[in-house]
Design a protein around this nucleic acid. Structure first.
Lengths: 189, 189
DNA sequence: ACAAAGGTGAACAAATCTGTTCACCACTAT
DNA sequence: ATAGTGGTGAACAGATTTGTTCACCTTTGT
């Protein structure tokens, strides 16, 4: 990956997330990154392609952070309960909400702006959400094939979405901890 | 309210919800409604004002529908459990998700596009969410002033948001019923 | 020394967006 | 009849959007 290309994607990701996808024009990304317009269109055929590249980057960030969190938690031999190991997701969320870089979930937001289910951007967002739920499912049971595991993973996924929206639209950053307690109750019921 | 003005708001609400707020141009609203541009700008100073009017309409729709649902449920003297009376919210959601007019929550979506917390559109969306939670709280206990009631209402609110996002981004329309069962477990724990 | 690759800057095209203006039309109440 | 109200249509302005093109610059590998 050429450094200029990477820099464009990094900058675009931040601006898209903070200001929205339609509201963030190409020119702002160029000004903020210091890259020329000709270079942008040498690396990306269109704005849509840049959006997809930014989402791809974000997807990788989220997945790797999540997996690392869970793995770190498992390193402590005291943590054997798969339920508790999954709940670290919400600690992750809490940190994110309280960081300076929280402007809602890229994928929820982009889904709102590109709502057509046939649009490749929308499809990408839906896939991301599915991957996250699948990771949760594999954590709950080593073989994540059972119906019950899938159901539980969807429940956790639903709580994650709810916490993100609450934190974003109402500024309720404690929603991650509210969701965590709810998840504990649900999973142990 | 002049009929042309009302018609503009009705049309704008549908289009904004379906295609997004930036993506929906004034011209599309005019073409779809059959109203002239001069008339639009006689009734609204700007597109932003039209957006706010559309959100106001949607707010009233949601609040009145929700209240009616709860009242209707209470008419059956068998329903005395406040928890069960609150859970009809999720039946409401389920119907909405499975209707032809479901394109996500206007207020979540508009919050994504106008993310600045000082923007009047963003503020309106946050207020709407707060009103919904307050309605839930008053249903849980007649005097909704206790800390515990507020907490429970926030939990229900979180489940509602989660169900909406799941239904919208992943097309999982059954999320309303998943959330309903979770709500029952939480409230009776 | 020189060619190739990657990047720049600026001008440009073409579409699209919000918002303004104004002459004109239809209806209704007096 | 006539004045007032609300609406239309069309042209127009001005800003902003995405995307293209091209002459030129800089660095790097041979």
């Amino acid at each position: 990956m050429q450094p200029r290309k990477q820099h464009l994607i990094d900058t675009a990701l931040i601006l898209f997330n903070k200001f929205g996808y339609h509201a963030t024009g190409i020119d702002l990304i160029l000004a903020e990154s210091g890259v020329s317009k000709a270079t942008l269109y040498k690396h990306f055929r269109s704005k849509e392609e840049l959006i997809l590249a930014a989402l791809q980057l974000r997807h990788e960030q989220v997945v790797s952070k999540l997996k690392n969190r869970i793995e770190d938690n498992k390193k402590n031999p005291a943590n054997t309960d798969p339920v508790e190991n999954v709940l670290v997701i919400f600690d992750n969320l809490s940190e994110w909400f309280n960081s300076e870089t929280f402007f809602g979930c890229n994928f929820i937001n982009v889904s709102a702006e590109y709502a057509d289910p046939n649009n490749s951007i929308n499809i990408f967002a839906a896939k991301h959400k599915q991957v996250i739920v699948d990771i949760i499912a594999t954590q709950l049971t080593p073989q994540a094939d059972s119906k019950i595991t899938q159901q539980k993973a969807d429940q956790i996924g639903l709580l994650v979405e709810g916490a993100i929206v609450m934190a974003h639209t109402r500024g309720m950053k404690q929603s991650a901890l509210i969701a965590k307690e709810m998840a504990r109750t649900i999973l142990k019921a």
